[in-house]
Design a protein around this nucleic acid. Structure first.
Lengths: 176, 176
DNA sequence: ATTATTGCAAATATTTTGCAATAAC
DNA sequence: GTTATTGCAAAATATTTGCAATAAT
């Protein structure tokens, strides 16, 4: 259940995300859907009602969504969808490469679109659970240099900063 | 069980570590043990035979050790030690701050000494499981700058590169 | 007609916990 | 003597899987 790498204290809960609603305006959606179609056709995977529903729901949902949240949204439309199907569908998306799986340490796997052009990493607030994305090309550059130094071929990486976000550093407002 | 952040393909197994045996020559050991003693005294935690055995074994073992491996070594000396005790003891070490927990994606939590002066991150080979440590102060610096940019107080971080190590890139040798 | 997919329940696998017995202080 | 700790078994928890039924090709 723990996954932050250092402390083993009671884990905070990731409650929200900084990019809620972003995906619905993501200009790469059509391309990603086309990639997915190609992947499914190539592998002779079938387009079922459940998959279409789960995938549509995921594409409309905010990033960093969990299986639980996704299943709830899916079941609001078709209550008979099993959670194994959601797991299997998200795995399919991950295998196709259009989705990334993240484990930010609250015990739930989160999913987001894999935007290869604009790679980003994450700041995770241990107080409120907010997830903020950051891009820092210089870090990527140095990282590549480190890998080269060890003659290591990087296939994926994880760079996550855990701490306290700006909002949570402020003293709590008292109700007047 | 998966934890690498992107693919959901069958997970590699982390088999070994680049720093095997290092800890026994780690010059910071006495300081870390003193820190631990102070922590335990302050919290009125008791020095039991089991804890002493587990802690001694851990300090002598290679870094990135798993609970399983640690328990096996401990039981070679005292076969009656329960695994819950090992879990609880490692949690104690993590809470005290002298140990860091890592999840590199093979389903096992790994433990290493938390060397605050020489912070390092990890390269994890997805083929052979080798874990290599690297230090890159410039990345730490940029990371601090990113955090400052978002007014984010970093408490811990994770920077892991997953890929193929130098050895595993070479074609496999055929037996003559 | 063939074969992928679904949904359910059961299985997995790691870590945690309740509790009575034991040992450290 | 009090209270932390242990060891065991059972629980908790997220994810995976076997399988018969169903649906897509």
């Amino acid at each position: 259940m723990l996954d932050a790498g250092a402390s083993s204290e009671k884990m905070w809960v990731v409650k929200s995300t900084a990019s809620a609603g972003r995906s619905s305006s993501n200009p790469d959606l059509p391309r990603l859907r086309a990639d997915l179609d190609a992947y499914m056709t190539k592998r002779r995977l079938r387009s079922t009602e459940q998959r279409r529903l789960i995938i549509d729901t995921f594409f409309d949902a905010h990033e960093h969504i969990t299986i639980d949240s996704l299943l709830k949204q899916v079941r609001a439309i078709d209550s008979r969808v099993g959670y194994a199907t959601v797991y299997r569908t998200m795995k399919l998306l991950a295998d196709s490469g259009i989705v990334q799986e993240h484990k930010f340490g609250d015990g739930f796997t989160r999913y987001e679109l894999n935007d290869e052009d604009h790679h980003h990493d994450h700041l995770i607030c241990m107080e409120c659970g907010k997830i903020t994305e950051f891009e820092e090309p210089l870090i990527e550059e140095l990282q590549a240099r480190v890998a080269a130094r060890y003659d290591f071929q990087v296939r994926q990486h994880k760079h996550e900063l855990y701490g306290v976000c700006s909002d949570c550093q402020k003293p709590k407002k008292r109700r007047p």
